[in-house]
Each structure stands twice: as structure tokens, then as C-alpha cells.
Amino acid sequence: MAKNYVTTTINGEQTEFLCETQQTLLDVLRDVIGLTGSKEGCASGDCGACSVIMNGRLVCSCLVLGVEAEGATITTIEGIAQGDKLHPVQQKFLEHAALQCGFCTPGLIVASKALLDENPNPTETEARYWLAGNLCRCTGYDKIIRAVMDAAAELRGESVG
């Protein structure tokens, strides 16, 4: 069986790749294209470490076939910062020490950005439920939620710090 030829847009760049049908978008990102920022924690959609934004929607890249990326627009963790300027979510994760080991962090940052794109003024409860698909075993989520709320405030122009 021939591999599938796929043309897609990843982090603003048109990208072509070949993949076998059973390869997931996560397999393609990590093993074919070399974008290893998206992590495999479970390969079953339960941990969120592979979160990417595909055609404007937050998805687990382990639950998308690579071949489904044909014609899609995909943002991965590598595309969240603009050049050397961190996205406010990234900056607030650093300031609030919202990471320990850092393995879940890429997925959480992508998911948090997707949240704030859709809901600029989430309540703490909304943020917690939105991020419930992103497991973090290190932090107890406290500082992550604070970072997300603070990033939201900054994006709304309300941040004092």
C-alpha cells in the first residue's frame, strides 16, 4: 500500500508529508516532521499532552489521522510564540511557575490559548473544565489555573503585573 501524500499548513507554513494511514497526526508531527513539542502521554485522548489546534478547534493529535490533515490549518506548541515573543499564556506560565517537569506544559499551553481565543473572560470553573482533558501530575493545577486567569486578564488589558 502506497503512503498517503498530504499537503497541510502547520504553524503558518505549507507543509507536505507522506504517511501511512494508521499514523496519527501526532506520529506525523513527531516522527515524520520532527515537531516533538507535542507529547505522547497516552495515545488514547485521555491526557491532552498532544493537544494542537486544527482548523480552529482544539483536538488531541493522537486522535486524528495524519491523512486527515489534508488541507487543514494546524497550530502546534511550536507555533504559539510569535518569533521570539512569547504568547502571554507562555509568559504567565513562567511567571507563575505553572510547570514542574514540563511534559504536560505544551499541551496545556495550546489548550489554554484555545480557551482564551474562544472565551477571553473565563471563570476559574470554566478554565478548570476546559482544561480537564490536560492531565498534570506535578502541580495540582493551582498555579496553572492562576497563570491562565492572569494571561486572560492581560489579554483583556486588565493585568496589573
Binding site: 513539542g37 510564540a81 507562555q90 510547570l99 514540563g102
Partner: peptide
């Protein structure tokens, strides 16, 4: 090591 970890590097 913070920036590396929030950018996926």
C-alpha cells in the same frame, strides 16, 4: 529551563 519548556523545545 522555562522558555524551553513552554515552547516545546
Amino acid at each position: 529551563d522555562g522558555v524551553d519548556k513552554v515552547t516545546g523545545r
